[in-house]
Structure formats: C-alpha cells, structure tokens
Write a protein that binds this DNA or RNA. Structure first.
Lengths: 192, 192
DNA sequence: CTCGATTGTCTAGCAGTGCTAGCATCTGGC
DNA sequence: GCCAGATGCTAGCACTGCTAGACAATCGAG
C-alpha cells in the first residue's frame, strides 16, 4: 500500500502547489490575471489537472481564502497577546487586521470580496472562518460594554474594520490618515 | 441646425437607455449577466453601438455608479432633514444608507465593489461622488466630537456603514440583527 | 434632382475566458 | 512481460470584451 500512499502524498503536495501558486499570482498581478491557463502553466501541468483537484476556479479562490483566514486569526491573536490592557489590545487588534489586509490584498479579496463559494454565518461555515471571528471576539468581548452582546459588538467592529480595509485599498479613502482612523474607531467603539 | 439638434437629443436619449438598461439587468440578474451582447440585444442595437457611447463596459458601470451616487446623496439628505435632533439624524442617516444598499445592490456594487474607472479622494473625483460624501458630512459634523476633524470622522463612519452594507449583503453577517447593529454603531461613534 | 461625401450601424471576427469530452500514455499488480 | 485502470493530455465548446471593415442611410453641393 506504500505506493498508493506516496501517490496520495504527491497529490496533496500538488494541491498545495496549486493554491500557493494561485495566491502568488494573485498577489503579483491581481486575481484577474489568475486564469486557469496561466495557473496551469505555472504549475507545469495542463488545465484539466486543476479540475481534478477543485471543482473550478471558485474553489481555488476559496482554498486561498481559508489559508488566509487561518493566518489572519493567528496574527490577530499574536497582536492581542503582545499588548497589555484592554484598550491597547483593541487598537493592536485593529491595526493587525488592517495590516494584514494591506500586506495580503489578494488574499483579503479572496476572503471577503470574491466569491470563493464559502458559507458564512451558517452551520457549514468552515472552521478557519469561524476561528477568525473567534479571534476577534476573544479580545473584543472585554470592551463590548454593559448589556451589549459581545457577538453583535464584534460584528459591528469587524464590519468597520472591513470597511476601512476595502475603502482604503480601493483608493476611496486618503491613504495618509490611516492611523488616525484606527485610533478614532477603536477609541469610540470600545468601552473601557 | 435643428436636425443636428434632434440627432443629439436622440443620441443622449439612447445613452440614457443604455445606462438604465444596464442597471435594470444588473439588478435583475447581477452584474455578471450584464454582457455587452445581452445589453445590446435589450436596447435593440448591435454591440458596437455601445462603444460609440462608452469606452467600454467599465465606463457603463461608472455611469450607473454616478447615477446611484446622486440618488444616494438625495436620500441621505432627505432622511437627515426629516428627523429632529443630532442623535436621531445620525441613526436616520445610517439607516438610509444601509437601506439604499439593500434596495439597490447592483448600483451599490457599481459604486463601491466594481471597477467603474472612477477616481476617489482625488481632484478629478466626479461631483456626484463628492456630493455623496458631503451629504454624510453635513449631518455627521455635528457629532464628530471635540477636537476631531469632521472629515476624518465622516470617513470612519462611512467606512463602518460600508462594511455593514457589504458584509450583510454577502451573507457574512446574520440578517436579523441589522437594526441592532445600526443602533450600536451610531450610539458609539456619535458624540451627542 | 442627382451625385459624391459623410454619418451611422451592422456583420463578422479576434484573442481571451472557464470548463470538459475523449483519447493517449504511463504504471502497478499479476 | 503483459494487461487493465488510473492519470494527464490535446482539442474543443460556448462564452466574454472589443474592433476592423463593409454597407446603407442621410446630407449638402451643383
């Protein structure tokens, strides 16, 4: 059975290669440039191979999104953990979120702008996504304020961050005052 | 010269038809369904006619976005004007914004999600867009709080609304608690 | 009223997209 | 060493945005 195991390993390896290459290409030249042909050429296989791993382009985007969600969750936790005091943690959390979006624009798009075929706020939401939300919740529950549901508070906070992230990146907000916006948002939303 | 004038009128009329049809089709079946062929067929002209009015599909999206921006600005002003008290106006404003996004998803996408080739936060930003921001600013300047730049405050508030609008529509936030989220956001951000 | 020039519109086609049917080739188990 | 089945390929479909070039309708000059 060792041969089959090796084949399975190689197959899994190739799947990782596809996702990594798609991500690379998207970060380099944007998701528009990630065509099945270009992707196939980069991994040095023919197009149909992609379809033996994923149902279609949408699923590849979804895979990149999941990968990104895990990373984001980790970075959020790290940022929160490395700071003292509820108030400071909130700002650090917000900065980490916006920083991630800025450093990984294509991944962020895969998660929230594009259709990766992922379910949200539902039972079959992938673990990585729930965990990202949980990472926010862990820090934000302490500053939700009296009588405010922590989940609801986290949703609002997250939405605000998401708005800042997307509008900034699309050039809809002047790039300079990013830090001032974070301070303002965290200062107003969080109850210390 | 009357003949030329009539032709110009007819041409302008057809341009409006193109934009209106694109919007219609997008609201009916989503922007993916708005192909140049389908659009051409609906207006009962051939494809190249579209390109005699617009540089390409992107510009058509941009035209829909501008139309939407004007409507949004008007609705925001109406909502604010019909309410008494700074605090109430802010909530009404937020509700009107989210309501517009929900009632006109395709238009909202044209404005903020898709590339309509429009400049933002720059000198050559179209008037309609500046005016939309101005409509927000007019109400929000009263609740920015001491020592906070009204423009910056409006940016943050707008970003939060945008985040709520997009995440809600994409199914990323549970649909039920929309009103609670608006109340929370307006209550925390606005300084009365 | 006729005729050439100018508009205006259309047909047909290009290069690219996501995706798939069906054939070749390669390989593991006998 | 051979054969069956897994595996990856070539070739092609229907679609996309966009455009060149042919054609017809309209206009102004004589």
């Amino acid at each position: 059975m060792s041969v089959q195991e090796r084949k399975q390993r190689e197959r899994a390896e190739r799947e990782r290669l596809i996702v990594a290459t798609a991500r690379e290409l998207a970060e380099e030249q944007g998701w528009d440039a990630v065509t099945t042909r270009r992707l196939a050429e980069r991994i040095e296989y023919s197009q149909p191979v992609l379809y033996s791993h994923f149902r279609g382009k949408r699923e590849i985007i979804g895979a990149v999104a999941l990968e990104g969600a895990a990373e984001l969750a980790a970075e959020l936790r790290a940022a929160s953990a490395s700071t003292e005091g509820a108030r400071g943690r909130v700002t650090a959390l917000a900065r980490a979120y916006l920083d991630f979006a800025e450093r990984n624009p294509a991944v962020y798009d895969a998660m929230f702008q594009l259709d990766g075929g992922l379910a949200f706020a539902a039972e079959d939401t992938p673990e990585a996504l729930k965990d990202g939300f949980a990472a926010l919740l862990e820090t934000l529950r302490d500053v939700a304020g009296e009588g405010v549901d922590p989940g609801l508070f986290t949703e609002v906070f997250w939405a605000s961050l998401h708005g800042l992230a997307t509008l900034t990146r699309a050039g809809r907000l002047p790039a300079g005052d990013a830090e001032a916006r974070v301070e303002l948002l965290a200062g107003r939303l969080a109850v210390v």
